[in-house]
Design a protein around this nucleic acid. Structure first.
Ligand SMILES: [Zn+2]
Ligand SMILES: [Zn+2]
Ligand SMILES: [Zn+2]
Ligand SMILES: [Zn+2]
Lengths: 162, 162
DNA sequence: GTTGAAAGTGTTATATTATATCAATTAGTG
DNA sequence: CACTAATTGATATAATATAACACTTTCAAC
């Protein structure tokens, strides 16, 4: 989960990674000011770590990095930072991996969908609208009111295909 | 997770529950004979318990019931039975709940999609084809080869809506 | 039928993921 | 400043899951 080639990510396309990180952090900074959210040191750094890694990170992997940088060393430190990031749309939890990834389209609240490469661990967040899909249609027809959807697809990314 | 009104399930429609269980077990029996799968006592009973409950059951909840009936009492007993059932399409794992549910359309291999009621715990498995959806389309376009999809929607079932 | 290989069962032990709670600190408010 | 709410960090524990071993059962080959 940890040692993934950053080249392979962000929709499996290469990109200027440090600029990508800086921009995402600045964006988060703006959103937090707008919404009067407290973007504290741990939270900012947690998001930075997720962004740098640019792939799903387990809570304990994040915790280890935070600990190494002088933050707390116990599970709640990581879980609370993650809860803040997820709640406010800066990161997402990947259910299939019990892991967390920085959001690729922060700002607007959205239902994310993920493509997860089983070979290299790359993760791509796609802007699929869940409310437009067949599942949502089925739900509406049966009177089920959807509040949140989870869409994750496992497989092989373009780089890892034979 | 455990005490759910069976009336609320199976697509949130009521049905003859004991007949439903019996039929599903018979169906599993047939499929196992066809495919030369060993439908042992623990496995059969595990499926029976999932069917009777007719809602998602945690591995340890299943384990407790198996233990009460004289099977093993240690985690691997439940996890192995579940692995067999899931692998062969008789049950599914609900990632969002870390729980397991009997398949509503056994026989054919399929990518299940679920509607999960956050109020009463009811679960409906819908026959949505994942490969036809927008996520699959996006994947194809970017060269990603999907091997398996997870689709879970949380919300309120018809019975629980105000 | 006996035998050997493969699969299944149950246990012990341990790994991994996650939360409840409390004391101390910090940030925002009047 | 004084008050309150939010945040942090630690302790402790809960919940979920797997590795590895000994023993038994199944099944096919002989
Ligand atoms: Zn996102
Ligand atoms: Zn890959
Ligand atoms: Zn199914
Ligand atoms: Zn309900």
């Amino acid at each position: 989960m940890a040692d993934v080639n950053p080249q392979a990510l962000l929709g499996f396309a290469s990109h200027n990674h440090s600029a990508c990180v800086a921009e995402a952090l600045a964006q988060a900074e703006r959103v937090c000011q707008e919404h009067r959210l407290r973007f504290t040191d741990v939270r900012r750094r947690a998001l930075g770590i997720l962004l740098e890694n640019h792939s799903a990170l387990g809570a304990y992997e994040l915790l280890e990095r935070l600990d190494n940088e002088g933050f707390g060393s116990k599970p709640p430190v990581a879980y609370r930072a993650l809860a803040f990031l997820v709640k406010n749309g800066f990161a997402h939890r990947i259910e299939k991996l019990n892991a967390y990834v920085a959001c690729a389209h922060p700002g607007a609240q959205h239902d994310p969908a993920f493509l997860i490469c089983n070979d290299c661990g790359a993760i791509a967040e796609t802007p699929v609208s869940a409310s437009a899909g067949r599942l949502a249609q089925t739900a509406r027809q049966s009177g089920f009111q959807i509040s949140r959807t989870i869409m994750e697809a496992e497989g092989q990314c373009p780089q890892c295909r034979p």
